[in-house]
Computed example of a mutant assay.
Amino acid sequence: MAGLLRGVVRTAAVAGTATAVSNRVSRRQAGRWAQQEGPPAEQQSAPPPPPQPVAPASAAVPIADEMSSRIDQLKELGALKEQGILTEAEFAEQKSRILGT
């Protein structure tokens, strides 16, 4: 029985060693072939730069419209104040309401 166990262990050791050597040889050969072929295409050229983020035009338009609307309202308030229709206090109150302060 001991002889049988010894034979099985020896066979496993030989098979394991053979597998390890075979894998090492395969990896070495693959490395040599890769060197002969040159660097992979990924390494030959630099990757393109990432695209620049672009703000959606639809988001910019309402903001611009809102800003021009506020400016127009402030101009109208200024004109009403110059004409004497609004007092300084009324002008300041309406101005702060439009500007949200």
Rank of each mutant, 00 (worst) to 15 (best):
A57H: 01
I71R: 12
Q52N: 04
S26K: 09
L4Y: 05
V25Y: 13
D72H: 10
R32Q: 15
V61F: 06
T101G: 10
T17H: 13
F91I: 05
S58L: 02
P40I: 10
N23M: 12
E93D: 15
Q35R: 15
A89N: 11
N23A: 11
S45K: 15
A92F: 02
I71G: 02
Q35S: 15
M1W: 04
A57L: 03
S68Y: 09
A59L: 04
A41G: 07
L5D: 05
G31H: 14
R24A: 13
L4C: 00
R28Q: 15
S69P: 00
A41R: 08
G100A: 13
A18C: 08
Q43K: 06
E82I: 05
V9I: 11
Q29L: 15
E37C: 09
R10G: 02
G38L: 14
D72N: 09
S45F: 13
R28C: 10
R97A: 11
R27S: 14
P50R: 06
P53N: 01
E76Y: 07
G16E: 08
Q35G: 14
V21C: 10
Q73N: 04
V8Y: 04
A64S: 11
A59F: 01
P39F: 15
T19D: 11
P56T: 00
I71Y: 08
I71T: 10
R6D: 04
L77N: 01
V54C: 00
F91P: 01
V14S: 05
F91H: 10
P51I: 09
A18T: 06
T87A: 04
S26R: 13
A92Y: 03
P50Q: 04
A55Y: 01
E42V: 11
I71S: 10
P56E: 06
V61Y: 05
Q35H: 14
A59S: 12
R27E: 14
Q43I: 08
P39C: 07
P49F: 06
A20F: 07
S22P: 01
S26E: 05
G78Y: 08
R6V: 01
K81Q: 09
A64Y: 05
Q35I: 14
A59I: 03
V14H: 06
A12Y: 12
D65W: 06
P62R: 10
Q52M: 08
A30Y: 15
V14R: 08
P56Y: 00
P48D: 11
R10Q: 05
A20Y: 08
E66P: 00
G31N: 15
S68I: 10
P39N: 14
I71Q: 11
Q94N: 10
V54G: 00
G100K: 05
Q44G: 07
Q43D: 12
A12D: 06
E90I: 02
K75R: 13
Q35F: 15
L4E: 03
G3D: 04
A18K: 00
G7E: 05
G31C: 11
K81W: 12
K81N: 13
I63W: 08
V9G: 03
P39H: 15
A79P: 00
E76C: 02
Q73T: 06
A13G: 09
P53F: 03
R70L: 03
V8P: 02
G31F: 12
T101A: 14
K95H: 09
G100N: 07
I98E: 06
